[in-house]
Design a protein around this nucleic acid. Structure first.
Length: 312
DNA sequence: TAACCGTGGAA
DNA sequence: TTTCCAAGGTT
C-alpha cells in the first residue's frame, strides 16, 4: 500500500475580482429590469421618508410584503414621525403590531423611536453606525435604511440578495445558512463604485430575488441575467450542504407565547390569569411562556394576578 | 455559533 | 397534510 507523502495541494483561493463577471454586465441589466418591473410599494414612494423606510424594514424582517402592507399604512397614519410613536406606551406599539409575528420587533421599534427622539432630534440618523446602535437594527437593516432612505453605498445583504449572488455568481442554489465573511466580501466586491448606482443596485438585486430569483419556482425565463447566471449555466445543481434549518412550531413556547399575547392584544382592560390559563393546558409550559413575555417586556404583571400590555 | 423569537400563505 | 419560507436581530 502506498502512503501519501504529501498533503494534496490546496485549491488556490479564487481570485475574487478576476473571477467575477464583468460588473456592468451584471449591474446594467438588473437595474434596467428594476426600472421596468419594480413594485409600487408605499415605503418606496418619496413621501415615505427615512422613517417610513425604517418602519417598513422592521416589519419586513422575516415577514412577507403582503402581510406588512396594511399594518404599515395604519402605523404611518397613526405615528407619522418617530416622536409620535415615542410618546406612546410601548404596549400600544405591540397592539398595533397585530399578527405580524415576532412582537419583540414592535418593542424595539418603539425603543428605536425613543432613542431617535432623544439622541437624534427626532430624525432617523443617516450614518450606518448610528443606525446600528438603535435597538432592533442589525447589519442588514442599518445598510438598508442608509441605502434606501439616504442613497448611500452599502452592501445590503438580505436573504434575497444572498440568493441572487449565490446563484448568479457563486453558482450554488442557496447561500449558506448563516451569512459568512466570504459572502460579505463578495457582496462588497460586487457593489457599483458610484454611490447612487450602488443604491439602485441594492434595491434592484433585492427585487430580483423577491420576484424572479425566488427560493422555489425561480423564473429564469424572465431573468435579465439568466445568460450569465453561474448556477443556471451549471445546470442548476441541487443544494449540497447541510439541510436548511427546519423550524418546528406546534407545541413550542413560541406558540404558547403567541396565544397569550393574542389575548392581551385584544383586551381593553387587564386580563386575569384565569383567562390566560385557557389558552394552553400544560401549566409548566404556560407559566414559562408567560414569564418569558414578562421578562421580555412584552407583558406587564399587575397586582391581583392581572396582566396587560406594557404601559411604559 | 446556534437557538430562540410568530404568523400565515403557497407548494 | 406537511413542509417550506418570508427585506433578521439578539443572546
Amino acid at each position: 500500500m502506498t502512503v501519501p507523502t504529501k498533503p494534496t495541494p490546496r485549491t488556490p483561493e479564487p481570485r475574487a475580482a478576476e473571477a467575477l463577471p464583468s460588473l456592468p454586465a451584471l449591474h446594467e441589466p438588473v437595474i434596467s429590469w428594476f426600472e421596468d418591473h419594480a413594485r409600487d410599494l408605499p415605503w418606496r414612494r418619496p413621501e415615505a421618508g427615512p422613517w417610513g423606510v425604517m418602519v417598513s424594514e422592521f416589519m419586513l424582517q422575516q415577514t412577507p410584503v403582503s402581510r406588512v402592507l396594511p399594518v404599515y399604512e395604519q402605523w404611518l397614519a397613526r405615528w407619522p414621525r418617530p416622536a409620535d410613536l415615542a410618546k406612546e406606551p410601548s404596549g400600544e406599539a405591540v397592539r398595533a403590531w397585530g399578527r405580524l409575528g415576532y412582537p419583540r420587533r414592535a418593542l424595539r421599534l418603539h425603543g428605536a423611536a425613543t432613542a431617535i427622539t432623544e439622541r437624534h432630534g427626532g430624525d432617523v440618523p443617516a450614518e450606518h453606525a448610528q443606525l446600528l446602535a438603535l435597538p432592533g437594527i442589525g447589519e442588514y437593516t442599518a445598510a438598508a435604511v442608509a441605502s434606501f432612505a439616504y442613497g448611500q453605498r452599502h452592501a445590503v445583504l438580505d436573504t434575497n440578495v444572498r440568493r441572487v449572488i449565490a446563484r448568479a455568481v457563486a453558482g450554488t442554489q442557496y447561500p449558506p445558512n448563516a451569512t459568512t465573511a466570504a459572502e460579505r466580501k463578495l457582496a462588497r466586491a460586487l457593489l457599483p463604485d458610484e454611490e447612487s448606482t450602488a443604491a439602485r443596485w441594492a434595491a434592484a438585486s433585492m427585487e430580483l430575488g423577491a420576484l424572479l430569483c425566488t427560493a422555489r419556482g425561480e423564473r429564469c425565463d424572465r431573468c435579465p441575467i439568466a445568460s450569465l447566471c453561474a448556477w443556471r449555466l451549471a445546470g442548476k445543481p441541487e443544494h449540497q450542504g447541510p439541510p436548511r434549518r427546519a423550524q418546528t412550531y406546534a407545541g413550542t413556547d413560541r406558540q404558547v407565547r403567541g396565544k397569550l399575547l393574542a389575548v392581551l392584544r385584544e383586551a381593553t382592560a387587564p386580563v386575569p390569569q384565569t383567562v390566560l390559563n385557557r389558552v394552553w393546558d400544560e401549566p409548566v409550559q404556560r407559566a414559562r411562556a408567560l414569564d418569558g413575555l414578562v421578562s421580555d417586556g412584552l407583558v406587564e404583571p399587575l397586582a391581583g394576578g392581572l396582566y396587560r400590555l406594557p404601559h411604559s
